[in-house]
Write a protein that binds this DNA or RNA. Sequence first.
DNA 1: AATGAATGAGCTTTCATTCAT
DNA 2: GATGAATGAAAGCTCATTCAT
Lengths: 190, 190, 190, 190
Amino acid sequence: MKILKAAMDTFAKQGLEKGTIATIAREAGIGKGTIYQYFQSKEEIFEQIILVVFDEMFQAWMQLIQDDWDPVKKLKLIIDYTIDTTLDMAQSGNKEQFSMVMEIMLYAYRNNTKISLDKVLQHIYAIFEPIIEQGILKGLFKPVDVKYFSFILFSFLDGFGLHMFFQYRHYNNDELKRTMKSIILKGILL
Amino acid sequence: MKILKAAMDTFAKQGLEKGTIATIAREAGIGKGTIYQYFQSKEEIFEQIILVVFDEMFQAWMQLIQDDWDPVKKLKLIIDYTIDTTLDMAQSGNKEQFSMVMEIMLYAYRNNTKISLDKVLQHIYAIFEPIIEQGILKGLFKPVDVKYFSFILFSFLDGFGLHMFFQYRHYNNDELKRTMKSIILKGILL
Amino acid sequence: MKILKAAMDTFAKQGLEKGTIATIAREAGIGKGTIYQYFQSKEEIFEQIILVVFDEMFQAWMQLIQDDWDPVKKLKLIIDYTIDTTLDMAQSGNKEQFSMVMEIMLYAYRNNTKISLDKVLQHIYAIFEPIIEQGILKGLFKPVDVKYFSFILFSFLDGFGLHMFFQYRHYNNDELKRTMKSIILKGILL
Amino acid sequence: MKILKAAMDTFAKQGLEKGTIATIAREAGIGKGTIYQYFQSKEEIFEQIILVVFDEMFQAWMQLIQDDWDPVKKLKLIIDYTIDTTLDMAQSGNKEQFSMVMEIMLYAYRNNTKISLDKVLQHIYAIFEPIIEQGILKGLFKPVDVKYFSFILFSFLDGFGLHMFFQYRHYNNDELKRTMKSIILKGILL
DNA sequence: AATGAATGAGCTTTCATTCAT
DNA sequence: GATGAATGAAAGCTCATTCAT
């Protein structure tokens, strides 16, 4: 939706507080009042952004994962994909979108938003669970606790992404990918 | 320093934007004007907080690491320590300090602050380098790229800490520790 | 008319400023735009409400007064009626209609509305004039100035009604009626 | 106080809603923010105005009433005073102050303000009670219910004042005074 | 050095009104 | 005729910062 797009651009560029409704309206080419026909408040825009972003993330990962490849290949794919998209974002105009999402998550963490941060995250963690399960069943992975490993895996990927943003100038991507994969795969492979 | 302490408490409790200079002054038991004798602006307070927090973190880790134990034990220690302190923070009154630090980092990332986020982070990554080096030299660790592994390690720990905050109710700590250690150690051990 | 009814309900419940055109439209079960087909502006709705309210009031009093009873009985009737309807309003759902009318009168007093507050009020005062005249002619009332007495009488009744609203919990109605009648009748009777 | 004075002028001139904080600040020769150092909200200004206005009214009436004159003379005085000050206000620059007070009372009636409209009014009614009591004791007044008569008396005076404002062009003041006094005194005198 | 009263830019939000459909 | 999406002026309120004391 046009407004949400403009809001994301604005918040990404200027941050949650400095990005004003007026700017979003101008960016969307509409009047300020119109925004309030579609969103009850600035906070609701935050919530919708989180939902959209996580839903897109969810969809993207589900597509990576639903195919017939074996779990090891999938895990490699996930890591590659994370790094690739992180770097794409870092190098494209969407550069600040990552920090915007983090800002909204911190906002949701602090304030009682309608959107449950817990739920949204659990939803994401759950994506990885079938892969891990499958890997264990196939005798490829160690018999780790599926929930815990998924949680840790996503937290690693997220932390890695975050620091990539903070530091993205300094590293060679291929080398990073190789090291990441080496660590995580060793961690899970029998 | 009294002001910085009050500022950290205030920002942790209320967030960077909602935490006002007035509140900090009241919390510190001084006048609003006095704060401006020690800091040029609210932004400078952010910067000083980052410096202090990362310096304390630096000191704490340096102490963990400077002893004579072997690298494997140190790595285990680091992971335990990270999880323990994260949980301590999550369960103590300092609960929100973690998100405040993240908020300031995002702030520093977005705005051109005097404090270089890069430098501060590089400083932290560097803590881990000697351990890795030592481990490799001793033939205990795989011959990974020291810089890259350190970067990844801290980004993992940070992401893990962040998600612990978002989700800290849901997990059993001992199980988490065991899984974390298993992953990271397998990743690095020969 | 449906719109006017909805407007009165809305303004009574929410006040002149907080009662919005949107609410009136919803209450009337029509679109916002439709209201502007029947009224030029919110102000015109105020004006029409005043007209309707005062016309109803006028009709009600005219009916009380047009019968053949003697002036003394009519005067008693008027006082009873005023108190009864005031209390009815105070105790029914229309509780706030009285203050709405007062609000509109103040509005009309302040702003140059098309509706002349003067005229509307003069119209009401004039209701009482025939009774007073009749009473004087019949030798029952003192030879007061008819216009002045009517003006004062209605201002008394209005002030009384207003304060009944502000204070309606605190008094016994029968006692109030008796005292009111005693004062006003003594004031006019020879 | 300077702000309260400016607020009263502004609200009197422009009404409660159209009178803005910006205007009050300009009128008072101060910045907008300064107003919020002394008042928590626009509503609190309303409340303080009511308190001040009723307190002044209270003081003025107390002075009229505390002297040694007999109750009949006092009652006459009260009526004269009410009409005189009403007319003074109507003809001076304070012309709209009366309707402002009424607006605030309606506001207080509708919204749950900190100021209790009931209490403030009861306080005023109570002013008249000693006179009535004294008059009854001295055998000058009928043995009316003191509370009720006081309530009615003030409601009459208030209603009369209100209508004077709505209609003040049309009447001869001396004639009004005479008629008012005649009615009210007959109503109470034995 | 310490203060806090004063400030005004800047924010979110509301809502009467318009007008293309 | 009926509609409601779009609008933007306008409002109350906040708060980092200044500066006279």
